[in-house]
Nucleic acid binder design. Structure first.
Length: 424
DNA sequence: TCTGGGGTCCTAGGACCC
DNA sequence: TCTGGGGTCCTAGGACCC
């Protein structure tokens, strides 16, 4: 298995005996489009676009056949259909994608517990502990790809390298339906010819800035004096990019991540100036945010409002609440008051959004208790909270220090204890 | 061509506290 | 008094990723 890249260099994806490339990046191929094709097998081989057909929509996903016509995700639907008029447009079904995502993640978990889901269709696996049992990274990746296909009918690509960053680049280079192993010793040779946009965190804006310094490839960024880079993009960014350009990336697998915010937003088919209509939409969005907060067993400390106008300028306004909330009504009150105070009244709005930030666990005050009998009641309440929010959502303050009961709330209430969320 | 919806992270200034 | 520095929180905006 080998193929040519754009510059004509040979990229090999042949069996590798390397054991240094123990970080795997698994990336599903054209995930949403492929899931839709499972339901519509007769469309295999056709250019398929997932997204809405409405005027202001963009492409959510495109099959490889559609990509041949220059259709890509995030592209305005109107442009995509001009490029590929015969494309078949399918409405997205996010529950379906989430279902298949969970199935794939479970299969990854059979290889190693060291799995970090990165998005709905990607994950990192650290297989360094699985080599003795399962073979080389190449063998593990090969079997994994076969297993995912057998079990789900979906193709994925795998990159293996000694760091997360290089593994992710490798899976991208292996696409579609490929496997690429970059041994530690080959990292720099693999990285340096790539364009600067291959650097994690370098998009269009940074590409422009780097281009002004004459930097076009990762190798250019690696070789440029750090001070020159720092003057252009700031010291923190410069240091990070310089490290990445040499293939240095200290990040390890993170088994769980905390949600930081929950939000919803809508782009109107036509700009809306009527405050009543905007209030109505704010209420709908706020209710959705509240429902998701409650389902997750968390509350938001800050409510933030987002507005985008006809000319695409975007503003945000936020306010931190006296008490965190998970109630749609409360979120709406705040969002509406932020809108009314924004002095943008009457200005046509293209997009409106509501977000809850500064998430904390739902805190339940359990009242006074200072002996075992009262504690048993508390325990019952903890169970009730657990069954509402899921096991592990809360733990009693008393358990924080093992057998020692710790007073968490202020000391002026004579021993009042609280249930303390895991993430507080 | 005319730009979605879900997020994360970073920067920077000002308030406030010690 | 016209004067310090560090730390943390809040707010606003922007780049970036999938």
């Amino acid at each position: 298995m080998s193929k040519q890249d754009g510059s004509g260099r040979l990229i090999t994806a042949e069996p590798s005996t390397d054991t240094t490339a123990t970080m795997l990046h698994v990336d599903m191929d054209a995930f949403y489009a492929s899931v839709e094709l499972l339901e519509r097998p007769e469309l295999a081989g056709e250019p398929v676009i997932v997204g809405h057909r409405s005027a202001r929509s963009v492409v959510t996903a495109a099959s490889y056949e559609a990509r041949k016509y220059g259709v890509n995700s995030a592209m305005p639907m109107a442009l995509a259909l001009r490029r590929c008029p015969q494309a078949i447009v399918l409405e997205p079904h996010f529950e379906r994608y989430s279902h298949y995502s969970q199935r794939v993640m479970r299969l990854l978990g059979e290889v190693t517990p060291m799995v970090e889901p990165l998005s709905i269709d990607e994950a990192f696996l650290d297989v360094s502990g699985a080599l003795r049992l399962l073979g080389t990274p190449w063998q593990i990746g090969t079997r994994l790809r076969a297993r995912v296909f057998e079990q789900t009918g979906l193709r994925c690509s795998v990159g293996a390298a000694s760091t997360k960053y290089v593994a992710k680049l490798a899976s991208g280079r292996a696409k579609p339906d490929g496997l690429l192993v970059i041994p530690a010793a080959g990292t720099v040779a693999f990285l340096h010819p790539q364009p600067v946009t291959a650097l994690w965190g370098v998009g269009g804006r940074s590409e422009e800035q780097l281009g002004r310094l004459g930097l076009r490839t990762v190798g250019d960024v690696a070789e440029v004096p750090l001070e020159a880079l720092a003057r252009a993009i700031g010291p923190a960014n410069a240091a990070r990019l310089h490290e990445l350009a040499w293939g240095r990336d200290p990040r390890t697998i993170e088994l769980s991540r905390e949600e930081k915010s929950v939000g919803h937003e809508t782009t109107f088919e036509r700009d809306v100036a009527d405050p009543v209509a905007l209030h109505r939409e704010l209420l709908r969005l706020s209710d959705a945010v509240g429902a998701r907060l409650r389902r997750a067993g968390v509350q938001a400390r800050t409510v933030s409002l987002k507005l985008r106008f006809e000319d695409f300028t975007t503003i945000t306004r936020s306010r931190t609440l006296g008490e965190p909330t998970d109630l749609g009504r409360r979120i709406y009150e705040e969002a509406r008051s932020l809108y009314d105070a924004s002095s943008q009244g009457g200005r046509p709005v293209r997009l409106i959004g509501v977000r809850g930030e500064g998430l904390v666990g739902a805190v339940a005050d359990l009242g006074l208790w200072d002996d075992d009998e009262q504690w048993r009641e508390v325990e019952g309440t903890v169970d009730a909270i657990g069954s509402r929010f899921g096991p592990g959502a809360v733990r009693p303050a008393a358990l924080l220090g093992g057998t020692t009961r710790r007073r968490i709330s202020g000391g002026d209430d004579g021993g009042r204890q609280r249930v303390v969320p895991l993430n507080e």
